[in-house]
């Protein structure tokens, strides 16, 4: 009987934190399918450290970690190619991209090579990111002119600047006040965070532009997984995938409820047309990819773009 520690971000609340929901399902499935031979201990709330620290821990010891993009960045910045804005037209396309695409095959292999750890799943977290602001309804890139947006990192700054807006860094705990006082006019986040941060109280307009697919990454220590008997190893890998599938069903049902909640609380939603989305994609993606090309090999960007196009085509055909 072995025990493995699993660390992740966010509170241990199944209703609020999709990653915790994933972790508890993973825990149950692993224990069930190994007849209790493998126990998973949960460490929510980033208890075992910040992103980079936890990534180091999962690289060196028997550990399971759910890393956000910030955690991946320190060891595998190439993953940012998969976070280009307006990359996916649907959930199905994103699912295919993150389990059965050339990009994902090469990314998981390169990640193993770089870190010695397995990148098993892209855990669906909160649906797609949406823009919010309190100045005017945003329907296309032109509506961004002159607005100030809260930016989480440089890629977001590049995106806002491509639309003629500006990006300014504000830590999450200060976002509400910044939006209320006008330090920033708007921001982007999945609906869940707009609700958690009560941002709907200070933001009037909601643009559902499928900006980015929000996910975190399940990483498992290589030596630990390789050291398991074959049947247990397979059980862990399958538990990870099944827990993610369960998560996707729940998240996608939840996202619609959350959007309804935001509308009931006074936000005015807008879903851009195909032409408007094309304009977003043309301007946003090229600015983002230009920013990224200074940091990673262009081949990864091209591969991600091609894989996403294939996934989009496969699902819009239906």
């Amino acid at each position: 009987e072995t025990t493995v520690r699993m660390s992740y971000n966010g509170p241990p609340e199944v209703e609020k934190n999709a990653v915790h929901r994933f972790a508890t399902n993973f825990q149950t499935l692993v224990e069930l399918r190994t007849n209790g031979e493998i126990k998973v201990e949960l460490y929510p709330n980033s208890q075992l450290g910040k992103e980079a620290a936890r990534m180091e821990q999962v690289m060196t010891g028997p550990m399971v970690n759910v890393a956000s993009l910030a955690g991946m960045q320190s060891v595998f910045p190439e993953i940012f190619a998969a976070n280009a804005p307006f990359l996916f037209e649907s959930y199905e396309a994103a699912h295919q991209f993150y389990e059965d695409s050339d990009f994902w095959d090469e990314a998981t292999a390169a990640f193993k090579e770089e870190t010695g750890a397995y990148l098993l799943e892209a855990v669906e977290e909160g649906g797609f990111l949406a823009f919010t602001n309190d100045e005017r309804p945003i329907q296309g890139p032109a509506d961004f002119e002159g607005l100030k947006f809260r930016a989480m990192d440089e890629s977001q700054v590049a995106l806002y600047e491509a639309f003629g807006a500006s990006g300014t860094p504000v830590p999450w705990t200060e976002v509400y006040t910044a939006l209320k006082t006008g330090v920033a006019d708007g921001q982007m986040n999945p609906p869940m965070y707009i609700i958690i941060g009560s941002l709907y109280e200070v933001q009037d307009y909601l643009t559902l532009a499928n900006i980015q697919y929000s996910m975190q990454f399940l990483v498992v220590n290589g030596d630990w997984l390789d050291g398991l008997p074959e049947d247990q190893r397979a059980a862990v890998v399958r538990a990870a995938h099944d827990a993610n599938v369960i998560n996707r069903i729940w998240v996608e049902a939840e996202v619609q409820k959350r959007i309804n909640y935001l509308v009931e609380n006074g936000m005015e939603p807008y879903t851009p047309t195909a032409e408007e989305m094309a304009a977003f994609r043309a301007q946003g993606q090229s600015a983002y990819n230009a920013w990224l090309a200074e940091r990673i090999d262009q081949a990864w960007i091209d591969l991600a773009t091609a894989s996403a196009e294939a996934a989009n085509a496969a699902h819009s055909a239906r």
Binding site: Q73, S74, D153, E154
Partner: peptide, 10 residues
């Protein structure tokens, strides 16, 4: 950790 890079200054 020479191989890991910082988030902003890179």
């Amino acid at each position: 950790i020479w191989g890991m890079s910082t988030l902003a200054l890179n």
